[in-house]
Design a protein around this nucleic acid. Sequence first.
RNA 1: GGAGGGAUGGCAGAGCGGACGAUUGCGACGGUCUUGAAAACCGUUGAGGGGCAACCCUCCGGGGGUUCGAAUCCCCCUCCCUCCGCCA
Length: 428
Amino acid sequence: MIDVRRIRTDYDAVRAALARRGDGTEELDRVHELDQRARQVSSQRDELRARVNALSKAIAQLRRDGDASAAEAKQAESRQLGDTEKALAAEADELSGTVRDLLLRIPNLPADDAPDGAGPDDNPVVEVVGPGDDPAAWGEHQRVPHWDIGSQLGILDLERAVKLSGAMFTMFRGQGATLARALCQAALDRNSDAFEEVRPPTVVLTETMVSTGHLPKFIDDAYHLERDDLWAIPTAEVPLTSLARDEILAESDLPMRLMAYTPCFRREAGSAGRDTRGLLRVHEFDKVEILAYTTPEQAPAVHRDILARAEALIADLGLTYRVLDLCTGDLGNSAARTFDIEVYAPGVGQWLEVSSVSWFSDYQARRANIRYRPAEGKGTEIVHTLNGSALAVPRVWAALVETLRQPDGSVRIPEVLLPYMRGAVEIR
RNA sequence: GGAGGGAUGGCAGAGCGGACGAUUGCGACGGUCUUGAAAACCGUUGAGGGGCAACCCUCCGGGGGUUCGAAUCCCCCUCCCUCCGCCA
């Protein structure tokens, strides 16, 4: 969440920044107003408490001195203050609770250098690597959708996945399953130079979902296990961001870099009926996420590094891709700046988002209460968080089998995956 | 699932209704001494919020309650430990 103090002291700038997103300004106005009242009430409450505290001290002294009647008089006085104090405290609690609820729903301020725009169509394309989406650039044998390739080669079994779990669930088989796992293995191995591998729980508490910004606003997108009040994670970003929740890190530990391979669960409630065929949009998929906690100063370099790493793997797989600089109107709720990597899947003729590399400034860390102690100076500062998918299986798998399909119908295994394919160099 | 014991500052660990935001030890930081370091000695050292400031408020796992006053008493919850049961 954004800092209330900035709303107090720099209201116009905060409002202008939010307006660039086209979202959140009504809540902001209400927060601005309610926060002022909340502070008023709580300082009245504090004054009363101070009087009660002072009286209690005086009573203690009087009792020690043996002056019981004077003590009783002060007790009566204090008792009278009690009711007013209770009422004020209740009001203050309610106000500050409302302020927090609103604050949790206000999105992050976009970075100054995030491009302006209203929606996905306004995202500037930063670079295109490979032949692009010109159909002439692709061979006949590559313009076959992955679901056809998958059933021809026996490596994808969508019908039975539906039998087991319903629409938009997937099942890889044989070398298709091996390929899916090889992608994750490769993603983990090539980032292990700088990122600690973590295997977090994939089912988490409500608070863990709130920290990253996935709740309360996006409740319909998440799977909830009602009986135990637990949530299936939509991305490893969720547990990894909460790993340091309520902790104070040493500046010398930053940047702290983590990666995790986990399943991800998404209800896709808002996109029912879209991309239902094949692997384009599924309820459960595997992903390797890489994430960092940094100081504000370290954040830009780490952001570039995560993007470079995600890009390099896609490039090494031999896929065509482009990088988008998300405009203010398309930025995710918690992000200040995001670069999306989209691969081109020639069989379905679509650009597929495979990685979102985001800088969240202190938005998530403030929710999660993750701080660090600066080496110089005293007190604590809020860390910055950043993350991106190093690799998300289904869409990369789809683009890969379409791109690397040979005229004879087999699929060539790219060199970076060879160590993980049990000796296979192609799938046929 | 059942029975008992616990949760206090970076860590360890006292306190069990009033001078306790908290004794003490360790650690960390600063100083004295030293060519330098170690040792010794002296001092400093939790977080959050409000206020221009003086200063005030909150926090002893979380939430409620009793009281003029709660780390301390009562209730509920969570987590940890021990034993029993069950079980990949």
